[in-house]
Design a protein around this nucleic acid. Structure first.
Lengths: 237, 237
DNA sequence: CGGGTGTTTGATGTCATTCAACTTACGTGG
DNA sequence: CCACGTAAGTTGAATGACATCAAACACCCG
């Protein structure tokens, strides 16, 4: 169960007033979901704000034609429901489905309560503001990448952001969830993903086996991936 | 020169406290730019917040390879610089170039002053919060479109959002700026834009001559464009 | 061991990019 | 007012990238 010190350790809440934190502690409920379980279905009305403590969560909608669109994939320190927290009117509500891609821990706060807190505690709402701007910057990068990077480069970019640069070569990492999901998230078909990843490997001295990836020459990968981007590596996250 | 009543009429500022508005009135400077002029170059440090009163403004960056990336196109009620207003650290600063695509009126506020105001006036920062969330929703839609719509559909979507639905058929409208710019904004080449627009015309009973577009059958256009989108028309903006 | 899901591979089609040529529109200076 | 130059827009043919459909393979879990 999230306690006061836990909330203070979260960047999003760290600057909130003492009383806000006490109130959050009182209202928060934590939950555990096994891989595959739904945290929220697209038919369900959403009345809680969700904060991911550990794990990976898929946020998806459907197009008119029934195709799945992966809007976002949340992981620790990400959250969902800020639209409802700060919205006065309720138009354009999202109706996305949230599903656990791995075993997942979250906590929730009731939206009306959190809404009151943010209205009364400027420091809390400033925290949200900053995190939302960071998310916005990330989305801007995604738009950029979809416009000018090819499939291999987009995959390479994800790999670079998963990599711990400090490690000495080869840098090893694990894909946190299925390639099929990652492919859809990157706006491509699984088949394309598979081929593009293969191309990336021979082109940039990267090795894949299952969900394990080994980078043998970081600079080579950075050169290939980041040349068609306005940011310079490292560009977390 | 923007006066108090002007600020109160702007949704972004309308809920701010009396004293904030007086302060804004004192600090704001308005500017006019002719088509083609730069409001901000990518080499310039940005020390003002910009609010567009009228006109269209291109926000662009460059990739490592020198390609232009049109990050955003601002028009009335849009603004630029909120990152700097709410950011504590200064990492990941953007360095975009802003250029007038038409004759343009804006006003500016010094970032440090606005920063102070938002920290002291919760109502003002909540206004920013709400507008930013709206922008975020729009960006999410863009990402969606880049993943699942083809070139013709993306163009059709822009046209639909420019159309005044109330009009009786044919619905006429003007493209507000060059097709080349619009093409780049939509993540495609001008040649592709030209062909895709032609395809849209014969497919959906739309007519183009120069920058004028006439829609003869709105439903047909909506059917074609919006089937591969999670939103339902009308979905302004 | 069997069945489902996730992943890869191949053959083929569609769509977007590229490069080049050409037309149109527009503004400037003679 | 016309001639010219420049930029925007269009068109064609060739290439490349990604999607699609179908099949095979790998792997995990019961």
């Amino acid at each position: 169960m999230p306690n006061r010190h836990f909330f203070q350790s979260i960047a999003l809440f760290s600057k909130a007033s003492e009383s806000s934190i006490v109130e959050c502690e009182r209202l928060a409920k934590d939950h555990f979901y096994k891989k595959g379980e739904f945290l929220l279905r697209s038919t369900q009305e959403q009345n809680v704000f969700l904060y991911v403590i550990r794990g990976w969560v898929k946020v998806a909608k459907e197009s008119g034609e029934g195709e799945e669109i992966i809007v976002d994939v949340l992981t620790q320190q990400d959250y969902y429901g800020e639209q409802q927290v700060f919205q006065t009117d309720n138009i354009g509500a999202d109706l996305a489905a949230l599903q656990a891609l791995t075993d997942t821990y979250i906590f929730t706060l009731p939206i009306p309560s959190l809404k009151k807190l943010t209205y009364s505690d400027p420091a809390l709402s400033l925290g949200f503001m900053q995190h939302n701007l960071a998310k916005q910057a990330q989305m801007a990068m995604e738009i950029e990448h979809l416009s000018i990077q090819n499939a291999s480069q987009r995959i390479g970019c994800v790999i670079l952001r998963l990599a711990e640069v400090k490690q000495s070569h080869p840098i090893a990492l694990h894909l946190p969830y299925d390639k099929t999901i990652l492919a859809t998230r990157l706006g491509m078909r699984p088949e394309t993903f598979s081929r593009a990843l293969a191309k990336l490997c021979e082109h940039c001295d990267v090795e894949v086996s299952g969900d394990t990836i080994r980078i043998y020459d970081l600079n080579r990968l950075v050169d290939y991936v980041c040349s068609h981007c306005s940011k310079t590596f490292p560009c977390y996250k």
